[in-house]
Nucleic acid binder design. Structure first.
Length: 962
DNA sequence: TCCTCCTAATTTTTT
DNA sequence: ATTAGGAGGA
């Protein structure tokens, strides 16, 4: 237990051991925030003798909660860690409401309304009242109103606008509907808990310490809850970073930091300043972005790693090209590092989940496994929702929302009109929808209108399903509970399999959907396992307060716990490992969901205006922080990219954050070459062993090209008109390359080789030809050539449309390109050439030399079309004349790998040697990508083996179609 | 009145 | 790709 302080720096130690009652730890990205918080928890238990069940720890996401629990376990052991009251704000609040809700008049079996419930309710009310608000928007307004937490009877000042009045009416109806179905929405969980703790402080009389993670994301209610939790001893620790506040849309208040200082004037603030995650280059770039916000108080952030490789800002023609480029860079990086970077090490972070499509397609086409975090949730899938809704009805039949949703699925001849009548009848009689139809079907009550024969049969069968389910649950008091059994029962009674099959004949999704249902059953089995059950009850429990009643737990609560877990997105996600082995897969995630995580290589695609300052966002500072958060997830390599045209084929402009004056010099405009020095530096940042030369040369043979040179740097289509290139400046500006530490770079006037990309632009399948496919073509062609030169030539011309198009950038690139080409033509499947890294010509190849090579270039390249100029120039002429002093050209001008004079970057060499390697042995990296902790958040299961096939085939289908 | 097939629109971020 | 909504048939 005394290893608590081990591996902490001075500031972290101070924070952990601080005797302060109220403590703020301000921790920038990668500074060991979670480490510090968990160590403090451990410290409180081990050295201050606090009892774990008297400590409340709140996080914002399930993922963070799980991760924190794991870490604390490693300090104080499983037993103690389990007893902590640790979870998301919502789950902790739920716990209190479950146990003490009776004291504030809460019915004991309330359900939780998730977003879709809320939306459905609102939609109905809006329709009924003939309003014109969008349900989603209305929900947002309601939620933010609730989150602000002003007491409901807030006096309205001034004359209410019509709009306002309408909204209030909607609000009222919404609340009434929730109450009628005995539901609480997410905000209600917090609001009711606040009410409970205010009116019954004894609930938390045991609490000795409260710790909050990501404090900058608290809204008013959460802030108040924190204070209420701690009302007995006022012992509070928070960690947070105003720069990482990205939940303003959820009413997070950065102001809470200062509010806290006011409320507890002896608050101590400790700043962590050292970043242990990212390379210097990444950190500087990120810092530059965040500092564009001038209202932000300046803050120190010290890099502890080498400068490393400069982040990349890459332009590409389209979202599809961007996706393919991304995939090719993943492959290239892996190969050039001798596969010492694994798929788990890559993350693609997106502003919005919807942007994932092109990337998923590209990864799918190449066969690279991936997982999508966020986006479509597992529990949001049609078939899962259906089953879960049945469970909800069984658990709580008075939940009319759920009843209405499932009563006619599968079809029972109970249509919209019938439902509407029944609903009105129930409302006017003051009974719930369920008890009305129960009475009707059992003949105790007359239907409000005549029901057709099939309709009343359908009604009876529905009632039957629910009653059967309820009976089963009641039986749990005498037999071991089995949610799986219940699901099975439901699935059988409603003929789920047949229903799904019928509904999805034609599309091929049935298999996947059915396997999702099976997955749900598997999860249910897990939660019902005897050991797990005890653990759950224990961890969800609250200490008994003398003289204050708790609602006791019973077996029938298993269902309740299962459903609550689903609503709060706890549990879930398929395990990241199968067959004992961790699955290697690329992570795709929203930036929001990536907070707190890190990966060696991070891609942030779609960095254009409208996406990263999102078109619907009104707080651009928050958008900037979002980009900052995304960038600071990267350890060694960061790629930003921007398609010149978005998915709607509209022109885009690069994010203003990246075109901000001065920002350009922090970026490279194409992916890095990786000479061995760079690989070494990269490995140092990642604290990994450097691969051997032979290993690298082995893997790099699989590459089509060593360089990021397939797509033009300016983002234009690959088959751009070649007349743009101008030979006159061909031999100028050859930056030194090939020296050990230099990464070949590109200048504004860099070299291009137009005649080598050639061919049949007209027949090129835009977007959908994968790199892999192209590569396979090359292989195939080369193979054929070996057999018969002539046949091959013919073949090549036939296949020309599929042939590789390319454009060469920069001197070093050209050299390596030719070397590479020679190699691959010599012996494509088993190249015997030594590593190019050292054999790469050090002398810049002259333009004419390069030209000479071109016609004799290897067979893999399709013949040049005759209509293209053969003696095309090597130098690309910028479309606009380059003025070296023009600041707007910044991006194109910086080139050498060492910073230019005047840059405020520290003069850190690329090599791993520099004194900036302040790495000391005491900082063991604990941060791991989500993929390695099995406690990841719920995600869609789209990428697990079974479903991937279907998904891919669908994508293929859609690709073919378009 | 209900079901099925077709077309059109849709995507910010999370509990 | 999914889903909502409308038209048309039973």
């Amino acid at each position: 237990m005394d290893n608590i302080l081990q591996g902490l720096n001075a500031a972290q130690r101070t924070a952990v051991e601080s005797p302060a009652a109220v403590l703020q730890v301000l921790a920038p990205p990668g500074s060991g925030k979670t480490k510090t918080l968990t160590a403090r928890v451990a410290h409180l238990i081990a050295h201050r003798q606090l009892l774990p069940w008297n400590i409340i720890v709140c996080t914002f996401t399930v993922k963070a909660a799980n991760e924190m629990k794991e870490r604390i376990k490693s300090f104080v052991g499983d037993e103690l860690a389990k007893q902590l009251k640790l979870g998301t704000f919502h789950s902790v609040a739920l716990r209190y409401l479950k146990h003490y809700g009776q004291h504030i008049g809460l019915a004991k079996d309330f359900g939780i309304a998730d977003t879709s419930d809320s939306k459905a309710i609102l939609k109905r009310i809006i329709k009924k009242l003939g309003m014109s608000i969008e349900p989603g928007q209305a929900l947002g307004r309601i939620s933010s109103r609730k989150a602000k937490g002003e007491t409901d009877s807030k006096p309205e000042k001034g004359p209410k606008s019509v709009d306002q009045q309408e909204f209030l009416r909607l609000f009222e109806e919404y609340e009434a509907t929730l109450a009628a179905s005995n539901l609480l929405d997410y905000d209600d969980l917090l609001l009711r808990c606040r009410f409970l703790l205010k009116s019954h402080p004894q609930c938390v009389s045991n609490v000795q310490a409260v710790l909050i993670d990501e404090f900058q994301d608290t809204n008013n209610i959460q802030y108040e809850l924190m204070g209420l939790f701690a009302q007995q001893h006022n012992q509070i620790t928070i960690v947070g970073d105003p720069d990482q506040s990205i939940y303003g849309f959820r009413s997070a208040e950065i102001k809470n930091l200062t509010r806290m200082k006011k409320q507890w004037p002896d608050t101590i603030t400790i700043n962590l300043e050292e970043n242990y995650r990212s390379s210097g280059a990444i950190l500087h770039a990120a810092q530059n972005i965040i500092e564009q916000d001038e209202s932000r108080p300046p803050k120190k952030l010290q890099a502890t790693h080498t400068f490393g490789l400069r982040p990349v800002l890459r332009k590409l023609p389209s979202a599809y090209a961007e996706a393919e480029w991304l995939v090719s860079e993943i492959k290239r990086m892996r190969a050039l590092c001798g596969n010492s970077i694994e798929l788990n090490d890559f993350a693609v972070l997106l502003r919005s989940a919807a942007l994932s499509r092109a990337i998923e397609t590209a990864l799918g086409n190449t066969g690279i496994p991936y997982r999508m975090v966020g986006g479509m949730r597992f529990y949001d899938r049609e078939e899962i929702k259906l089953v879960v809704d049945y469970l909800r009805v069984i658990h709580q039949p008075d939940n009319s929302e759920a009843v209405e949703r499932v009563i006619n699925v599968p079809s029972r001849m109970i249509g919209e009109a019938t439902i509407k009548k029944l609903r009105e009848e129930a409302q006017s009689k003051g009974v719930s929808f369920w008890s009305l139809i129960l009475d009707i079907s059992q003949g105790r009550r007359a239907a409000p209108m005549k029901l057709t024969e099939p309709t009343s049969k359908g009604l009876a069968s529905f009632v039957n399903v629910i009653l059967g389910g309820r009976k089963k649950v009641e039986a749990w008091s005498t037999e071991p509970p089995s949610v799986t059994g219940l699901i099975n029962l439901v699935a059988q009674k409603i003929g789920l399999e047949a229903h799904l099959r019928r509904k999805h004949t034609g599309d091929e999704t049935f298999e996947a959907r059915w396997s999702n249902v099976e997955e749900l059953m598997a999860q249910a089995t897990e939660i019902t396992a005897p050991g797990k059950l005890n653990e759950l009850v224990e961890s969800q429990g609250l200490p008994q307060i003398e003289g204050f009643d708790q609602t006791p737990e019973s077996n029938e609560d298993v269902l309740s716990v299962f459903l609550a877990n689903i609503a709060l997105t706890a549990s879930a996600e398929k395990k990241a490992e199968e067959d004992g082995e961790k699955i290697q897969q690329v992570t795709i995630s929203t930036i929001h969901a990536a907070k707190g995580l890190e990966w060696p290589v991070v891609f942030i695609p779609a960095c254009y205006d409208g996406s990263i300052p999102h078109s619907r966002a009104d707080d651009h500072d928050e958008e900037r922080r979002l980009l900052y958060v995304g960038m600071t997830r990267a350890q060694a390599l960061l790629y930003l990219s921007c398609p010149i045209k978005n998915t709607q084929r509209e022109e885009t402009t690069i994010s203003a954050f990246l075109t901000h004056p001065g920002a350009g010099r922090f970026f490279e405009e194409h992916g890095p070459s990786l000479p061995s020095s760079a690989v070494a530096s990269l490995c140092t940042t990642l604290r990994r062993d450097c691969p051997t030369e032979t290993c690298i040369s082995e893997t790099r043979k699989t590459l089509e090209s060593d360089e990021d040179n397939h797509w033009p740097l300016n983002g234009e289509e690959v088959f751009a008109d070649s007349s743009r290139w101008d030979s006159s400046t061909a031999t100028t500006a050859l930056p030194g390359f090939g020296t050990a530490r230099n990464i070949p770079t590109v200048q504004a006037s860099s070299l291009h080789q137009p005649q080598s990309y050639s061919t049949a632009s007209a027949t090129m399948k835009p977007g959908f030809t994968s790199v892999k496919e192209r590569y396979d073509d090359l292989m195939e062609q080369a193979q054929l050539r070996k057999v018969d030169k002539r046949a091959e030539e013919q073949k090549t011309s036939e296949e020309a449309p599929k042939g590789r198009k390319r454009q060469i950038e920069g001197q070093g690139t050209i050299a390596s390109f030719f070397a590479k080409k020679q190699r691959s033509s010599a012996e494509p499947s088993a190249p015997s050439q030594p590593s190019l890294k050292n054999s790469r010509p050090l002398q810049a190849m002259s333009a004419s030399a390069a030209n000479k090579h071109t016609p004799s270039a290897p067979a893999a390249r399709p013949p040049l079309p005759t209509h293209k100029p053969r003696s095309a120039p090597l130098t690309r002429k910028p479309q606009k004349p380059v003025d070296e002093n023009d600041a707007s050209q910044d991006r194109y001008v910086f080139l050498s790998s060492s910073p230019r004079k005047g840059d405020d970057e520290p003069p850190v060499p690329h090599d791993d040697e520099g004194e900036a390697t302040a790495k000391t042995g005491d900082t063991t990296p604990i941060f791991r990508p989500a993929s390695t902790s099995h406690a990841t958040s719920m995600t869609s299961v789209t990428t697990t083996r079974k479903t991937l096939g279907v998904r891919r085939s669908l994508q293929g289908w859609s690709a073919r179609k378009s």
